[in-house]
Write a protein that binds this DNA or RNA. Structure first.
Lengths: 208, 208
DNA sequence: TAGATTGTTAATCGATTAACAATC
DNA sequence: TAGATTGTTAATCGATTAACAATC
């Protein structure tokens, strides 16, 4: 393991793919796999897989391969998903509601522990098993919840002011579904999810 | 313009960013911009922007810059979003419902014109202004709707069989929200949206 | 004309893949 | 031992950025 060299972003993204695939194999009682199996199962080049792992140490045995369970656990540890990760969700609209109900999140250790909105009509209501709280109380609430991850599903007009609150409440990384750029301190990381952009790339590839 | 050379995927993704930004500028009555303005507004390097455009021809005037409206129109044309793009949505659950209600889609010319589900309880019901139809009738329905783009928001267990139907119905590109790989003919393009993967990348960056 | 900014070439940078000695 | 497969180095490939002649 070499903590000096920073890990390329594509490697981190593939790590998630490997991890999901390993979980699947574990569910099917597969015990061992080789980098060639990874290539067949995920489409990612075998050498790429070995190179990706090499940023973090040694994981396999020459001539044998990798133990599925051990590898899954070690990748989970690298990605910090070996324990439950508490997540705040801001914006209790349709998309926010859909995300809270999305079963994949819990399965992969992301637990939404607090839901927030600015709309008085929504504050106090239930969203699945969560009480929707007032955005103005994010900081207060997060003193107890101690989440470092937030998901943002508010309209763009509200996004920046909510972001400022999240940063103030100790949130370190944000998954942003609002179609707008967010200003955050250097220490905070934002990833954008943009449906429009995905659709335009697809649309480009239409032949006519 | 050189149609021989294939356009890099990162260029296509950035084209979407430029387009959204140009729409915003147009809304604010900005008439002209330079590649340096693009860098300030989107964070994308000015040389990168010019290089990206160069795959498709000449767009600006040396010493002057680009006309916002013209550039917006020409990029829209390249991305095939200069006219309304009809889109099918399969999976009338929470996420599907949220996407239909998402105002950004219509604003950027993606109109969801048909919603489908396999659940008898949902078929025939209204989702916003759309009637939920039977997945078994996708082909029939699309003879009229003539969509080439589909959004998939079904559980992973149903994803492949629905995909086969979509391909059969003439769909050419699919935005897949189901957490599983889809098998499609070479001529069909799929893009995956995976929340889990986004969250694991973020989670990795948490310091402790 | 002088200043600004393009489109494009060349240089740099980084990521992917192939090859292979080491090892089980 | 012979066969399989790793971890890592070196080669390849492709994308980003800098530089600049052309042009308004």
């Amino acid at each position: 393991m070499n903590r000096e060299i920073k890990v390329p972003m594509p490697t981190l993204e593939r790590l998630g793919t490997y991890w999901k695939y390993l979980n699947e194999l574990e569910d099917n009682y597969v015990e061992t796999l080789s980098s060639a199996n990874i290539e067949t199962g995920t489409g990612i080049n075998a050498a790429q897989f070995r190179k990706d792992l090499s940023y973090f140490g040694e994981f396999g045995r020459p001539g044998i391969g990798y133990n599925v369970h051990d590898l899954q656990k070690r990748i989970a540890h690298i990605l910090k998903v070996d324990k439950v990760q508490p997540v705040l969700l801001v914006g209790a609209g349709n998309l926010g509601s859909a995300l809270i109900g999305y079963p994949g999140l819990k399965r992969f250790h992301f637990h939404i522990v607090g839901a927030f909105d600015i709309d008085d009509k929504k504050i106090g209501s239930k969203l699945w098993d969560l009480d929707v709280m007032d955005v103005r109380r994010i900081k207060e609430a997060n003193e107890e919840l101690e989440a470092k991850i937030a998901i943002l599903t508010v309209p763009p007009s509200a996004a920046q002011s909510v972001t400022d609150r999240l940063v103030d409440a100790g949130i370190k990384v944000i998954l942003n579904f609002a179609p707008c750029a967010l200003h955050v301190p250097e220490s905070v990381l934002v990833r954008e999810v943009c449906f429009i952009q995905e659709l335009t790339v697809l649309s480009y590839h239409l032949s006519s």
